[in-house]
Design a protein around this nucleic acid. Structure first.
Lengths: 148, 148
DNA sequence: TGTGAGGGTTCCAGCAACGGGAAGGTCAAG
DNA sequence: CTTGACCTTCCCGTTGCTGGAACCCTCACA
């Protein structure tokens, strides 16, 4: 099948398939006499694997690792699990960061009238030296002192 | 003061200050006779505002909007609050997405032995046509049908 | 047999938001 | 006068693609 069929069946856009080939995430595709790329069901299966992995937020590098494990019939499932565990840790950290930011914003919004008047605790806080208590601003306060 | 002092006091790296100038987020700095950039306390204040805004995850474009509001003494606090509200919505969406991915990964990890044996539900799921139930795979199933 | 639509191919540019590093000018201290 | 710590500009690399230009291929239809 040609690239657009492989794209439809795998969920990976044709352009992205070419890109994956260019960065060696997938092997070079076979070509027809006229230079068209040709894909097999096995290729589509691999693309689908990549697609799903990317949707779970694995980086392309991590996907390459997962692909290698997938194709290594003698892998240990513990190795796969470790990759997934690292990803979960990253996600947890990201969620914690976003939650902290969210709480700060909601707190500021709560204290802002949100009307026609110009005075606004949100802007005040952004402009403030101490920077809206979004944790460790110690260094900044210190720099201000040092430069005085 | 010169750029590295402004960087220390504002928390924005010197390189980033130059970058902000190049994209017109901040006005062109004055220069000494020899071409060095010169910054005032007011400039540092603005940089600090930018720094805090960026830490709350606002894009550079949004920071430009916030800066404009900050410098507009006749702004309405409702406008600022609206920008913050949009940001909160984005964060909520992102957290929901990450949480969903996290749950999927934990579910898969739960069913993986994580030992020396090669069989691994995580890889199986990534390879599966239905793609680890991470929501709306309807289109993919449909494409598979259509191409059959 | 021509022709037009709808494939395919390559390469180049660009997105966000910087960071690294090269090549070179400047400044203050010893 | 030299040394080292600044400063300047410029360009490349990052991540993961996406859009577009310019061009070639294939197939159905008149």
């Amino acid at each position: 099948m040609n690239i657009s069929q492989a794209a439809r069946r795998s969920g990976v856009p044709a352009k992205t398939i070419r890109y994956y080939e260019s960065i060696d995430l997938i092997p070079e595709a076979d070509r027809t006499a006229s230079g068209y790329r040709v894909y097999s069901d096995k290729d589509v299966e691999r693309l689908r694997f990549i697609h799903h992995s990317r949707r779970l937020g694995f980086s392309v590098k991590e996907v390459a690792d997962l692909l290698a494990l997938w194709e290594d019939r003698s892998r240990a499932s513990a190795d796969v699990k470790a990759v997934a565990a690292r990803r979960v840790d990253e996600i947890d950290a990201k969620i914690a960061e976003l939650t902290s930011i969210r709480d700060t914003l909601l707190h500021l919004m709560d204290r802002c009238h949100g009307d026609d008047r110009p005075d606004c605790p949100i802007l005040d806080s952004l402009a403030d030296t101490r920077g809206c208590h979004a944790a460790e601003q110690e260094d900044e306060a210190e720099e201000t002192r040092r430069s005085a």
